[in-house]
Each structure stands twice: as C-alpha cells, then as structure tokens.
C-alpha cells in the first residue's frame, strides 16, 4: 500500500486512463477513437488475445481470499513508430477495444497526449460518470425514509 500511495503522478495518471479504458464500453471507445481521426504508425508487440482473469473475493468481505469466478478480458500491446509502448487490458472479448486501448495508452505518453485526452479520455470519463450518477440517483429515490409512529397516550 505504501508503494502505491507514493506512486509518481505519471503512473497514477496512467493507471487512471487504463482503468477507464478497461471499464468503458467497447462501442464508446471506438466511436471516440474514430472521432480522433488519426492512424498512428505502429507494430503489434502482442496480438489481441482473449483470456480470463480469476476474480477473487474475501470470506465475510474482510477475511481470507477466495476464488469467485472468472471474467473475460482481452489484452493487446502496441509499439508506436517512435518506440513508445502501449498496453491495453479491457473487460470483455473485443479485440478492437483492446487494440484501441493499447494505442491510446501509447499516444498518451507522447506529444499528442493533450489531444487524445481531450478527444477521448475526458468525454469517456464524463460518459461513465453520467451513467453512474443516473444509477445512483435512481437508487437514492428508493431509499426508505422511516417515519416514527407515536402509539398510545402517555
């Protein structure tokens, strides 16, 4: 945990965009990627590959870890013409999604970072936040407000 809190800002930022790309719908990433309208020169370090990750939980939420079941994950690694390497790990089985995540990860480490952030990551983050907020506000509307009933006479 100490190591994580002392992470340099750059790694923290990279972790945030990779996490966002992993959790976003493939269709949203693709739409925003196409909107950026660039085709960076790159080679594949790792062809997009579909696999599984064993998800774990804890007994009683706080105790010993146990295996809950797997989830599908797709990964890909790319290398830009300039030598920058990008990795994509995304939920689901879309190879395009993994590849685009890898390219975005690589581009975010180049001079194009600001453009990529503005065109893809910021709108993607907003889209995900908005979706979460809508669900949370529907949940909030189902919160029980207890009324105390006064019974009998004193």
């Amino acid at each position: 945990m100490d190591v994580e809190t002392n992470f340099p800002v750059m790694i923290e930022a990279r972790r945030a965009w990779l996490s966002l790309l992993a959790k976003s719908p493939a269709a949203s990433v693709e739409r925003l990627w196409n909107g950026l309208n660039i085709a960076p020169d790159h080679t594949l370090l790792r062809n997009p590959e579909i696999g599984a990750v064993m998800v774990r939980g804890r007994a009683g939420a706080v105790g010993a870890a146990f295996n809950l079941g797997e989830m599908s994950v797709t990964r890909a690694s790319v290398k830009l013409g300039c030598g920058t390497v990008g990795h994509g790990y995304v939920q689901g089985r879309s190879k395009t999604h993994a590849l685009q995540a890898g390219l975005i990860d690589a581009l975010m480490q180049t001079d194009l970072a600001q453009d990529v952030e503005a065109a893809i990551l910021i709108p993607l983050g907003q889209e995900m936040d908005a979706k979460k907020k809508i669900r949370a506000s529907k949940a909030a509307a189902t919160k029980v407000e207890f009324l105390t009933m006064v019974r009998g006479e004193d």
Binding site: A52, V53, M54, V55, S72, R75
Partner: peptide, 9 residues
Amino acid sequence: LPRFGGSHP
C-alpha cells in the same frame, strides 16, 4: 480461455 492471472480481492 488462457488465464491472464488473478485479481485482488
């Protein structure tokens, strides 16, 4: 499916 690894709990 190949197993990429295990998650944190």
